[in-house]
Design a protein around this nucleic acid. Structure first.
Lengths: 349, 349
DNA sequence: CTGAAAGCGCTAACAA
DNA sequence: TTGTTAGCGCTTTCAG
């Protein structure tokens, strides 16, 4: 299973099975440095020499050891991305965009999933940092990022995505969660709804807080109070949602519309609505493939995952390139996409 | 933006801004090797010494340079995954599974997208190999993998996923595309259909060939001939699909069912069906979130992306651990999931 | 139990 | 245009 290249000092020593720059130099009859020059496409090598070296490289199947080069240069051309779950469409779209930017800069991407666990996020960030990544993009699971202060101080570029950093001053790329949610809810209000239910995650972290706040703002601006009977936060368990929805239906003034604050809540709610007599208008935060094909189509407040990923990656590479300006926050706009479910008026239900 | 740790040889030389094992040794008053022992949790260090070293590590914020360790050890604890598009759900599920296995083995994952371009796949594989990954999982875009022969010969572990390797003898993990497609089509036949259309990719690469072959086999087993008028291969452009479907509808004997051979074709077809009078039963290859919520639900032949990823990763780590047995092919079963669209009989349409 | 020396594969700095 | 020397940060001998 292993072949050994022509060893230079074949004193019986078991060398690495891959040819090194040394092997190439010996084969081509030039010095190490000359090979290095050719490999790195440095100027100042005679065409004939270069050709000879290239030939030897081809014959021996040499490939530069990037780890060694990185060690010497102190730069790995590698960035890390810590997400919660790479299989989730929103995050895999981000990953794709980030990778695309990295790739255009000749860098590779370490992708790691934290499973929304703060300890694991921390561990991954540390581990990637010890792998000498040039920069790190983090979709935070943890509430406190002071553990990164030392790394950042010693030159690691870090960009936070989706949620802002806490405990350190660092670049951040966000969606305008609050404005988006507000506009989504106002869209329902504009269609005549006053009793609007909110189904989403517990307001214990950034995006959840912001989106619920957007809901509250929308109601407030139109003189509608938040009715706790219409608000359901936390675990998006279908059974839990079902029983809450049924309970809402039995209120003296049941909801005529609902706003779901994230994908998980939305999907769970849609599955429940399919088996429940409750008829409501519906606007969801976050778009999803196939929402257009449901009956009715689901009106959403869509984020731009590719845009988020691209912005974060470009900011990161700017920092890697040496930009030491003060920390920046970039906020991307969300977009309301009307597909039917959000345009139903109370009368049409 | 940069702090310098206590330099050992503070001759004014601008050292790396991160503390090294040498800094720790100096701080703790021990030798390099002792620090190394502590960092690597080697046995044979007096408890008090270890404690002192650990303390220095904490104070200095030392983190072992993985690149340097890798250089010395010839092992990076890193694997590469080359997919076509990480944002595609099937592939991001695979990535998640692969990462999960890697993580459990203490390894990190390089994720790279080839955009279904053979040249790019090749380039990525080479580049990752030069980064000294311990192993590589590839979802092939190219038709010939002999370019990897040299790497494999010199010890790089490679597993092919989704499509078999060509030109090299290597481990492969596949779905039983042909059997799955056959069963899907037979499911339609069992429900009384004889005129079954096939919409999928051009049979120019493995999965497309296998799935179409499954379609053919199913028909053959039931004495039905393949009618070219009912077969549409290639580019899943909605307009193209629309016109073909309308043409099929005008046949003297129009299709009563259709089988779509991949996600892209399926989604395009669903979008077209929604705006076309054509009524057909439908079975699709590959599952998709929300298929259960459409009306009717979409009956599918589902692959197991997590299973594929896990199998490939486990096989890879077996090889990395030294397993030199001959190349293996693992085939995972697909599963028919009935949701309504595939159980419609010709009479019910 | 601890340390000194050598060297992994490469590139930076300086000759020639 | 080319080569020599040193050394990146770490681990692996091999000695104490």
């Amino acid at each position: 299973m292993r072949t050994s290249p022509s060893a230079t000092n074949a004193g019986a020593g078991l060398k690495s099975q891959r040819p090194t720059i040394k092997d190439v130099a010996a084969h081509a009859g030039v010095s190490l440095k000359t090979v290095s020059r050719v490999v790195n496409e440095e100027a100042g090598v005679k065409a004939s020499t270069r050709k000879a070296v290239l030939a030897s490289i081809g014959v021996l199947g040499f490939r530069r050891n990037a780890a060694a080069a990185a060690l010497r240069q102190g730069q790995t051309s590698t960035i890390g991305l810590v997400v919660k779950d790479i299989s989730e469409p929103f995050q895999s779209s981000i990953a794709h965009a980030v990778e695309s930017v990295a790739s255009s800069r000749g860098a590779h991407l370490f992708a790691a999933s934290s499973a929304d666990d703060a300890g694991r996020e921390r561990q991954l960030a540390s581990s990637l940092s010890s792998r000498q990544v040039d920069g790190l993009i983090i979709i935070p699971s943890s509430e406190n990022h002071s553990y990164l202060a030392q790394e950042i101080a010693s030159g690691l570029a870090v960009v936070f995505l989706d949620c802002p950093a806490e405990g350190v001053d660092a670049d951040t790329v966000l969606s305008d969660n609050r404005v988006g949610a507000r506009k989504g809810v106002e869209h329902l209000i504009d269609h005549g709804h006053r009793r609007i239910s909110y189904i989403g995650e517990s307001a214990t972290f950034y995006t959840a807080v912001e989106r619920f706040e957007g809901y509250r703002e929308a109601l407030e601006r139109h003189g509608i109070g938040v009715d706790p009977d219409l608000v359901m936060l936390g675990n998006a368990d279908p059974e839990r949602i079902r029983s809450r929805l049924l309970k809402m239906q039995n209120l003296s003034s049941p909801p005529t519309a609902l706003f779901t604050g994230n994908s998980v809540s939305t999907l769970a709610t849609l599955r429940v609505l399919g088996t429940t007599p409750l008829k409501v208008a519906h606007v969801a935060f976050d778009d999803f493939e196939l929402f257009d094909l449901l009956t009715p189509g689901i009106t959403v407040v869509a984020q731009d995952p590719a845009g988020l990923g691209t912005a974060a990656a470009e900011l990161l590479f700017q920092r890697i390139a040496g930009d030491t300006g003060s920390a920046r926050t970039i906020q991307l706009h969300t977009r309301l996409i009307q597909r039917g479910s959000g345009e139903l008026t109370p009368e049409e239900l």
